[in-house]
Amino acid sequence: MLQRTILGLAPIQNSLLGTGVVLTVLFTVSRPEASAGLGALARLLFWSAHIGTALLAILVVSALIRRFNPTRWPLWWLVVSLGLFGCLLSAPVYWLLELGFAPHLEHSEPDGYWDVLGARGPWHGIAAEAVEAMPQFMVCWIAINLPLLFARPTVYGDGGGDNPSDPEPTSDTEQEMKQRRDQFFDSLPEVIGTDIVAISSDLHYLNVYTELGQAMVLGSLKNIAEAFGEEGVQLHRSHWVMKKQVKKVCISREDAYCLTHTGQRVPISRANRKLAKALFGQLNHSAVALQGAVSANAAAPLKRVQ
C-alpha cells in the first residue's frame, strides 16, 4: 500500500497542501503552548507561517535529492542528511517568527534551557530553533520518504529484460543522453526489465512502469524526458509515456489520457491535448468506444487495466 502513495490513498505531492491546511487549523483551534497568549487571527498567522515554512523546506530538499545518484550514496544517508539540511533551512525563519510574536506570547520570557540559550543572540537563537524543530521535522520528512525507502517492485510477468540496444552515438550530446539512459536502467530492479512504458513523478520519486512490472526510484522526470528524447513524450507535468507503447487515445470534454498496450492510463493535461492529437491523431477514431469501456477506472491515473 506504500507503493506510489501515502498509504495508497493519494499522491504525496497532492497531499502536502491539504496536510498543511489541516495542521494549521488544528493548531489554531487547539491553542498549543507555543502560541499561548495570541488571538485567533494571530494564531492562524503564526501556525500558517510555521507549517508553511516546513512544507517549503520539504519541497526544497525534495528538489535537491533528485540531483543525487542513489547508486553512489546510500538512500537512507541521503534522506537523513537532506532532512537535517531542510531543518536548518527552516530554523532562521522560525527564529524570526518567535522574535516577531514574542511580545504577544504569554511565555515570552525564557522558561527552559533552549529558551535561555536562544536569548544569548541571533546565532544561538537559530541553533536553539533548529534543535527544537528537528524531531518533528525529521519524523515528517522520513514519513514522506517511506514509500521510497521501503518500495518493492511489482512484477506483471516472469523474468527481466536486457537494456535496449541503442545505436552508436554520433555526437557528444547523444553520448550524454545514452549515459543518462544507462544510469536510469541501472537504477531499475532487474526483475521488471527495461522495456519502459510510462513514468510518473511524485515529489522526488519516479514511478516507473515497464512491460514486466513497476518500481519506484529516485529521479527527475525532466531529466528522463530529455534522456529519451523523441522516443517518448511528456503530455502532463507529472507523466511521461513511450510513444511506441501508446495503443489508443481518449480525449473528451471531461477527460483525456493515453491507453498503453499494457493497460496503463497516462493522463493528458488540457494544455497538451493539441499535441496529443498531433502525435496520435490516427488513434482517436476509437476514443469514444474506449471511454465507455474503461470509464470505471477513471479515478486512478496510470492504473493497470485488468
Rank of each mutant, 00 (worst) to 15 (best):
L302F: 13
R43A: 09
S286E: 13
N297Y: 08
V217A: 08
H124N: 13
L203A: 11
E190D: 12
V266Q: 01
V191N: 02
V305T: 07
L117I: 15
L96M: 14
L149F: 07
V241C: 06
V61F: 15
P189Q: 13
T173R: 12
M138L: 15
E254K: 11
G20S: 10
F46E: 04
S295P: 01
Q264E: 12
A130K: 03
P147M: 02
D186W: 09
P70I: 05
W76M: 04
P147C: 01
L88S: 08
S269R: 06
H104Y: 15
Q175D: 14
G213Q: 07
K277S: 06
A49E: 13
G112C: 15
K274M: 02
I126W: 01
E230M: 08
N272F: 11
V266Y: 01
P11E: 14
V208A: 07
L7E: 06
A143P: 03
Q234A: 12
I224N: 03
E176Y: 11
A227C: 08
L146Q: 11
I12V: 03
P169L: 13
W114E: 08
L283P: 00
R237F: 05
E168S: 11
P167E: 08
A34R: 09
M177N: 13
G121W: 09
P74L: 00
K243C: 07
L16E: 10
M242E: 04
W141R: 06
V93A: 13
D162I: 01
W240T: 00
T194V: 07
P135S: 02
T71D: 15
G8Q: 05
N145T: 01
A40C: 02
L82A: 13
P103C: 11
V131D: 04
G161W: 04
K178A: 13
S220E: 07
V60F: 11
V79I: 15
E98C: 03
A278F: 05
F150Y: 07
A119K: 06
A198P: 00
S108D: 06
R265Y: 00
I142P: 02
T28L: 03
G37M: 05
S81V: 14
M216H: 03
P189K: 12
D255I: 10
P301D: 10
D115E: 05
V288N: 08
M242T: 02
L41Y: 05
T24C: 10
F228Q: 04
S238N: 11
P110M: 01
D158I: 00
Y113A: 09
V116M: 15
F101L: 02
